[in-house]
Every structure is written in structure tokens, then in C-alpha cells.
């Protein structure tokens, strides 16, 4: 019998036996610390123009600044320390990613549970709309919405939510439906428990494993999506530079061999996304949920 319980001991065991996963878990924690406390130890606030010096522009990694500071990852065309820019950029990327996943999750839980619990016309309607959204690639939905709405943090979050809620709603409905078929659900009905108790006390807690795993997968996806959109110039505005925008700024300098402006921010993005993906993969092995759409 496969236990359906989240067990912290099993979790530690899986990680302790898997060096690769452990490495990326430490990475993830490191990135989170970097992002939360970033401004405390960056060289400068990269978007305070008074702290920038144009004489420092386009310096390769490990150069010394005009004021004898080290630019570990070099500077960009405005003399901005790249490492500081990356840390600030990651903050924005993660913020947008987490916010969009949390909102999609809330919408998904409400719609998915309502759909599964009440069935009938409500269910049919919600699921047809979700199917329609799912038939379109999420990247395209976000792209089109942003092309209509224009750049902006709220717009990006809105576009990400619109492209993700349907997956959540579908998966949660499907797992709620399969829980609904189980005898403990019938027994709760038989015992005349009130509806809110059945939904929140019995149905939702048992749908948690797929919800947790799906959220982490989608977090990685949302971060990549936002970066891609910002790279294409339809995502976040220049005033809120995420990693994608930083990479995009370095794009034109690649041809002339000044590779670092695109390479390093991309590496940071990649490590963040891999760490989240490996984390969610190990969670999936541990929780063994059925991610039916």
C-alpha cells in the first residue's frame, strides 16, 4: 500500500541519498536567501542612477571599478554591476512567478472543487471554458493578452494567471472527482456532515499532493514564461527589469563578443528553474499523485 501522507522523514531520506537533488536543494535555498536579503549585500542599487558611473560600462567579469570595487560578473552598457542587477532581477522574476501561481491556484481550487462537487451544468460550463484555454498554448495566451494590454507588472501577472488557471482547475477537478468516488466520501455524506466540512475537511486535504506538485512545476514554468515575454519586449517594463529583460539588453552585444551580459543572468535563471524543477520532481516521486487533466 502506497502511503498518501507527506512524511518529512521520507523526504529527507530521498534527498540524502540523491547527491544531485541535494545540491540543487541547497542552491534553491541559497537563491531564496539571495533574493530575500539581496539588497543588503549587493554592491549598489542597480537602478539608482546616481550610483552608476558611465565610465564603468561594458567591463568584463572580475574587472575593478572606477572606485576600486570588483564587478564579479562585469557591467552592462550603463556601467551597472551585473551581479547586483541579476539579484534585483531575480527578485522581480520570483515575485511575479509566485504571485501568478498563488492567484491561479486559488482560482483553480475554487473552480475545480465547485465543478467536481456540484457537477451538472456548472461543471460542464467551467470545464468547456477551461478546455478552450487549454487548447491554446499558454505562451500564446500570455503573448496576445500582453500585446493588447501593454507592458506592466499587473498585466504580466494577469496574463500568466489567465494562461495557467485552467490547468489547476482541471487537475484539481479530476483529483476531486476521483476522491469523490472513494467510499470515505460516501460515508461522510451518509453521516450527514455539512457540505463545507465535506469539501474542506475531506475532499481538499486529499487533493493536496497533486496541488503541491503542480504548483511547483507551474512556478518554474511561470518564471520561464515571464522571462521569455520580457525578453521579447512585451513583458515587464524597463522600470521593473526582470532577468529576461537583462538578458535581452545583452543580446546586441553577443555578436561583438561581450557575452557576459546575456550569459550570466541566463545561468542564474537556469539554476533557479532547474532547482525548482528537481524539487518538484522529487516531491512527485514522494507524493505519487495522479496529475490527470
Amino acid at each position: 500500500m502506497k502511503k498518501n501522507e507527506f512524511n518529512i522523514v521520507d523526504f529527507v531520506k530521498i534527498y540524502s541519498e540523491d547527491k544531485l537533488a541535494l545540491f540543487f536543494l541547497i542552491n534553491l535555498i541559497f537563491i531564496l536567501i539571495l533574493v530575500i536579503f539581496g539588497p543588503l549585500f549587493t554592491l549598489q542599487n542597480p537602478y539608482d542612477l546616481s550610483q552608476l558611473n558611465i565610465l564603468d560600462s561594458l567591463l568584463p567579469p572580475l574587472s575593478q571599478s572606477y572606485e576600486n570595487n570588483y564587478f564579479f560578473l562585469g557591467t552592462d552598457d550603463q556601467g551597472r554591476d551585473l551581479l547586483s542587477a541579476i539579484i534585483y532581477g531575480l527578485r522581480i522574476s520570483l515575485y511575479v512567478g509566485i504571485l501568478s501561481v498563488v492567484i491561479s491556484l486559488i482560482i483553480g481550487i475554487i473552480l475545480g472543487v465547485v465543478s467536481a462537487y456540484f457537477g451538472g451544468i456548472v461543471d460542464s460550463f467551467i470545464m468547456r471554458v477551461a478546455d478552450m484555454v487549454l487548447a491554446m498554448p499558454s505562451f500564446l495566451i500570455a503573448l496576445v493578452l500582453l500585446s493588447i494590454l501593454g507592458r506592466g507588472l499587473e498585466n504580466v501577472v494577469f496574463a500568466l494567471v489567465m494562461s495557467q488557471w485552467a490547468t489547476f482547475a482541471r487537475v484539481i477537478r479530476s483529483s476531486a472527482l476521483s476522491e469523490k468516488e472513494k467510499d470515505y466520501f460516501y460515508s461522510a455524506k451518509c453521516l450527514c456532515l455539512p457540505q463545507y466540512r465535506i469539501v474542506f475537511g475531506h475532499l481538499l486535504p486529499n487533493c493536496l499532493p497533486p496541488i503541491i506538485v503542480l504548483s511547483t512545476i507551474n512556478l518554474a514554468f511561470a518564471i520561464t514564461l515571464e522571462a521569455s515575454l520580457s525578453f521579447l519586449g512585451v513583458g515587464l517594463p524597463i522600470t521593473e527589469p526582470s532577468i529576461g529583460l537583462i538578458i535581452s539588453n545583452g543580446y546586441e552585444y553577443i555578436i561583438v563578443g561581450k557575452y557576459w551580459m546575456s550569459l550570466y543572468p541566463g545561468l542564474f535563471l537556469l539554476i533557479t528553474v532547474i532547482s525548482i524543477n528537481i524539487f518538484s520532481d522529487r516531491l512527485r516521486i514522494l507524493l505519487n499523485p495522479r496529475l490527470n487533466i
Binding site: M1, E5, K182, D183, Y184, C190, L191, H202, P205
Partner: peptide, 17 residues
Amino acid sequence: LDIQMVFQDPYSSLNPR
């Protein structure tokens, strides 16, 4: 509550959480 039911599968009839 006067009519109660016990089900076949003892593995799915108890909420595992």
C-alpha cells in the same frame, strides 16, 4: 442518521488524513 452504511473497501472508506 438512523440509516448508516459500511462499505466494501476498507482502504478507501477511511479518510487517510
